[in-house]
């Protein structure tokens, strides 16, 4: 949120905060993330209640294979690190380095989504779809909503890459990169809780 600032204080701020309108946009994006916590909170509540309702279908322990899940976790954690380095490069004004880290983040995100889709298809192949049981309905909607967020993020990053190529680092593109990094780290946090509460918890029997 902005306060009236003296000019010499504004000079010291990073680009995206030096511009008053863009800094308000960043605060607005935090408010969006707060509401998104509630979306995932509701889905986690549903899963917490339904997670033992197997209805003759496979149990969590029978269904989950930890290999692909660990791969997805590693890809997403690494992509969170690379976009962090991207923002670091942006603060130094290094456009090409920023574009490299952003592209790498997109590729890691695409690897995550591919592995996840492959996992979901292998579940469907043994008849474990969201029609099977309340557990699988809650699982598919929780993990699927997260996967849809990541997919959307990849396309968002693509538009940012094009804007960076055309306009370079300006107050506006810097704010967009900054809010994208907030979004991406937020998805990483949600995944950590899915990894812990859904996958690892499914293996505790």
């Amino acid at each position: 949120m902005s306060l009236p600032l003296a000019e010499e204080q504004v000079q010291k701020l990073p680009l995206e905060f030096a511009d008053e309108k863009e800094s308000v946009n960043i605060t607005g994006f935090w408010m969006f993330l707060v509401t998104d916590v509630l979306v995932f909170g509701s889905l986690f509540s549903t899963y917490a209640v339904m997670r033992h309702s197997y209805a003759m279908g496979p149990t969590a322990d029978q269904l989950f294979k930890m290999g692909p899940v660990m791969l997805e976790t590693l890809l997403l954690l690494t992509s969170s690190f690379t976009i962090g380095l991207g923002v670091f490069a942006m603060r130094k004004g290094q456009t090409r380095a920023l574009m490299f880290w952003l592209l790498l983040t997109m590729l890691l995100g695409a690897g995550f989504v591919t592995t996840e889709i492959h996992d979901f298809v292998s579940f469907a192949a043994i008849g474990a779809t969201w029609h099977t049981s309340a557990f699988l309905s809650a699982f598919d909607i929780l993990v699927g909503t997260h996967g849809a967020h990541v997919t959307f993020g990849i396309f968002w990053a693509l538009t940012l890459l094009l804007q960076l190529r055309k306009r370079g680092i300006t107050a506006r593109t810097a704010r967009k990169i900054y809010t994208f990094s907030l979004y991406w780290h937020f998805l990483d946090i949600v995944w950590i809780f899915i990894f812990t509460f859904v996958y690892l918890n499914g293996k505790i029997v």
Binding site: V34, G41, A48, V49
Partner: peptide, 26 residues
């Protein structure tokens, strides 16, 4: 933040609400 990091206040609030939602559902 520019001036004050106001996002910290709603963040605390929403974590409280989210934990309450999951915990009370269980």
């Amino acid at each position: 933040g520019r001036g004050l990091a106001w996002q910290i206040v709603p963040l605390y609030l929403v974590f409280l609400i989210a934990m309450g939602m999951v915990g009370m559902s269980i």
